[in-house]
Design a protein around this nucleic acid. Structure first.
Length: 476
RNA sequence: GCCGGGGUGGCCGAGCGGUUUAGGCGGCUGCCUGCAGAGCAGCUGCACGUGGGUUCAACUCCCACCCCCGGCUCCA
């Protein structure tokens, strides 16, 4: 798409600066994002991050990049093992359930699928190979407990992402952790030797009987699917340390090459101004919200509408406001489809051009979504004015419609299905009957039919240009 | 202790040294309308945490202070 490729600026955690995005291979982006640990339903904080990543990917695609996205599924760790044992099911049965739920949630939130969703347990050999390599190169050692640890003192760049000085630990926490066999507190496990807590979850490998540490899966799988150096790696801010720091250490120690060029991290969300936690009772999964009747597109809009590096305060008032904002956009698109005015030529062309430019330059600037949305709503207001004046011809309105859909493919906040112009037969009949009633000023019947249609999810509007209808929700 | 982010009108949320208003949501009024809906227009009282300073000019820069959030431990 034109020469716009190097116009995108992204904030790189590695340098703490906005940098022009230039991929390794022209026109292609290799993107790895840290996915869920499938021990429970994902919560809205998780989805904030996943939606940010989705927006990033969609924007890169809009700008003409061919994006290969890999998102890992962590299906073996302390929590999955503990919970599956508690439930008396196998680890696989347990994680399959939550993985399936996760994919359902992605769909509901209109998050595009990644190209690959590698599961940790399907990649044990790759991880073992990586760990062996690290041992051969002297970066890893076996501890007294039979586990294998990464020796961070051997990796000179340790701390370059999180900007932490390893020798300046939080005072107080230091002493208590030598129940493991590691030589230094900060060393982290690559391979965990089996113990009773693990039950029947273990792999017999050249490294002994055990299971992989958490960080190693991302290095192994990212490199398997995307190569030794990837373009973009992203996750929530909490992953900067130690997870991403450790990924860098493992990967770069093994390959001697940079692991990822751009590290992008999204801020956390707060709920009603407080940190989300189960004990505070402000912990929500997607299901919790949809069960209360909230529109998934409103949820998506809310999670999307604050810049990703800004903490987002999730409130129910905000969710309602987001729902109304989405309605405004939907109504607008419906109006476009009904337009049949005299035409205004240059005026609309100019508006579209300005809108496109503002939206694009905002998004290019580290995904400045607030400014992009402001441009969108400005445009909507201006075009609504033209629609009021019957100044938009059918073709012009369709051009606007196409533009809206094009940007909706970036934002993903409207289900295009609702704009399909299909009315159930019975609804058509009802509308006809209502028109007859209105003709003879039988308002009672007319209002009653309108209510009936509303119950079917069809909203009727009487305008000087005749009756208009729109489908508010899927009636299926 | 060390290191970050932030405090903007009723709510959410951009912005930048100055000439016109970010934008969304909500409320009010008007237009339109049988009603409703949608939309448009106007309004929503000095908007920029506090106190100083720099400047012709600060919400935007500097200093101090207050408050909130986060990282240094599993965590999106």
């Amino acid at each position: 798409m034109e020469d716009s490729e190097d116009h995108i600026l992204l904030f790189n955690t590695l340098t703490r600066k906005k940098e022009p995005f230039v991929p390794i291979e022209k026109g292609k982006v290799k993107m790895y994002t840290c996915g869920p640990t499938v021990y429970d339903f994902a919560h809205i904080g998780n989805f904030r991050t996943f939606i940010f990543q989705d927006l990033l990917k969609r924007w890169l695609k809009y700008r003409g990049f061919n994006v290969t996205h890999v998102m890992n599924i962590t299906d073996v760790d302390d929590k999955t093992i503990r919970n599956s044992r508690k439930k008396g099911v196998t680890l696989k049965q347990y994680t399959d359930y939550y993985m399936k739920a996760f994919f359902e949630d992605l769909k509901i939130l209109n998050i595009e699928r990644a190209e690959h969703y590698p599961r940790a347990t399907d990649h044990i050999p790759e991880m073992v190979a990586l760990i062996k390599q690290l041992m051969e190169k002297g970066y890893a050692y076996m501890g007294e407990d039979g586990s294998i640890y990464f020796d961070i003192s051997k990796f000179k760049d340790y701390g370059k992402l999180s900007k932490l000085k390893i020798d300046e630990l939080k005072p107080g926490v230091r002493v208590k952790v030598d129940e493991y066999g590691k030589e230094e507190v900060q060393d982290f496990a690559l391979w965990k030797a089996w113990d009773e807590e693990d039950g029947d979850v273990y792999w017999e490998t050249e490294l002994g009987k055990g299971r992989p540490g958490w960080h190693v899966e991302c290095s192994a799988m990212a490199m398997k699917y995307l190569g030794e150096t990837i373009d973009i790696h992203s996750g929530g801010v909490d992953l900067i340390f130690p997870h991403h720091e450790n990924e860098i250490a493992q990967s770069e120690a093994a390959t001697g090459k940079p692991f990822a060029r751009y590290w992008l991290h999204s801020e956390h969300l707060l709920v009603e101004g407080k940190r989300m936690s189960k004990s505070l009772g402000n912990f929500y999964t997607l299901r919790d919200l949809t069960a209360k009747g909230y529109d998934p597109m409103a949820i998506r809009f809310l999670l999307l509408s604050t810049h990703y590096r800004q903490q987002l305060n999730f409130t129910f008032d905000g969710l309602e406001a987001a729902g109304n904002a989405v309605s405004r956009l939907r109504n607008f698109v419906h109006r476009l489809l009904d337009a049949n005015g005299r035409g205004c030529g240059k005026v609309i062309k100019q508006l579209m051009e300005n809108f496109k430019k503002s939206f694009e330059s905002a998004m290019d600037d580290d995904l400045n979504i607030s400014v992009a949305l402001a441009a969108l709503f400005d445009f909507v207001r201006d075009v609504n004015k033209l629609l009021d004046e019957q100044a938009l011809s059918r073709d012009e309105a369709l051009d606007v419609y196409e533009l809206m859909m094009r940007f909706n493919r970036v934002l993903g906040i409207m289900d295009e299905g609702i704009f399909k112009r299909e009315l159930p037969k019975e609804a058509e009949e009802l509308i006809r009957k209502r028109e007859e009633a209105r003709k003879v000023k039988d308002w009672k019947t007319a209002d009653q039919i309108r209510e009936q249609l509303r119950a079917m999810g069809i909203i009727i509007e009487d305008t000087p240009q005749g009756v208009k209808w729109r489908i508010e929700r899927k009636t299926s």
